[in-house]
Design a protein around this nucleic acid. Structure first.
Length: 269
DNA sequence: TCGATCCTGTAG
DNA sequence: CTACAGGATCGA
């Protein structure tokens, strides 16, 4: 599921459907999801509280409670967070769930159980999220900032974009798409890129994410038969061996940092 | 800075 | 059966 656009879609939905609701009880079915406290301690702290606000920082979700504490949720690879009308009919992969007032359910569903939820005091939030970098749509995320960061790193472009410290919210898919749009080779060290190319990459990141947010929000509000990947149409991600939409060359797949990278070796140099 | 690791499901 | 998956952390 989740890179920034999907997490954003989740948050918007939760603001509409769950914000302002009282939490009757919280149940942690898979203790490994939560740390560092005992599940029972968290369940007790959250029961009876009201969900006041939903905030997104990069791929992180903060569920602010009226106690001043926040539940920090990270969906990782397969997590999802959503409201259902009747908590009794939750899915089997509901690793953590909350009963809201009126019997509705807030569900943390995660087949792989790699997601994480922590209960944080208000003053702990910034500490825990200190490595979450700038929001790509914030006024602070300027080409000048981006160029300066890139000048200080020899990382391959793919890994630089994946690193949440420089700009937050990108993952494997949208990194590949942004690099393709800016015509940057994923192995190219970022400090070797020209300023104009870095500016193009900066713009590509925002373009890709903006379009993807629109797609994700639309997909999220259209339950029917939504197939992952249909919403945002990828130019390179997952298209190994298929023709490049620009030059018709075959899309290649390589491995970087243990993960697949898809790109066009002719368009991206 | 990199590989191993956390988990389960699904595709080949 | 093995490979791989839209992520991040930890220890070497």
């Amino acid at each position: 599921m989740p890179e920034l656009p999907e997490v954003e879609a989740v948050c918007r939905k939760l603001r509409a459907e769950a914000a302002g609701s009282r939490i009757v009880q919280m149940r942690i079915e898979r203790p490994g999801i939560v740390k560092p406290f005992q599940p029972a301690v968290i369940e007790r702290a959250v029961a009876g509280r009201t969900l006041q606000a939903v905030e997104r920082r990069g791929k992180n979700i903060l569920l602010w409670l009226d106690s001043g504490e926040a539940l920090h949720v990270h969906l990782r690879m397969t997590g999802n967070l959503y409201v259902i009308p009747d908590v009794r009919f939750r899915p089997t992969a509901a690793r953590v769930w909350w009963e809201l007032e009126g019997g509705r359910g807030l569900i943390f569903e995660d087949s792989r159980a790699l997601g994480r939820i922590r209960l944080l005091q208000a003053n702990e939030v910034d500490v825990v999220l200190k490595d979450v970098g700038m929001e790509p749509f914030s006024a602070d995320f300027t080409p000048a900032y981006w160029i300066e960061q890139a000048a200080r790193s020899r990382k391959p472009a793919k890994l630089f974009l994946m690193d949440q410290r420089y700009v937050a919210g990108l993952g494997n898919i949208y990194v590949a798409e942004a690099l393709f749009r800016a015509r940057v080779h994923p192995r190219r060290p970022v400090n070797a890129l020209r300023r104009a190319r870095l500016a193009a990459l900066h713009e590509a990141i925002r373009e890709v994410l903006l379009e993807a947010v629109d797609s994700a929000v639309a997909a999220y509000n259209q339950p029917g038969r939504f197939v992952e990947g249909e919403a945002f149409s990828c130019a390179v991600y997952g298209r190994e061996g298929k023709p490049c939409v620009r030059c018709n060359c075959k899309i290649k797949r390589i491995v970087q940092g243990g993960r697949s990278t898809f790109f066009c070796s002719r368009c991206q140099r």
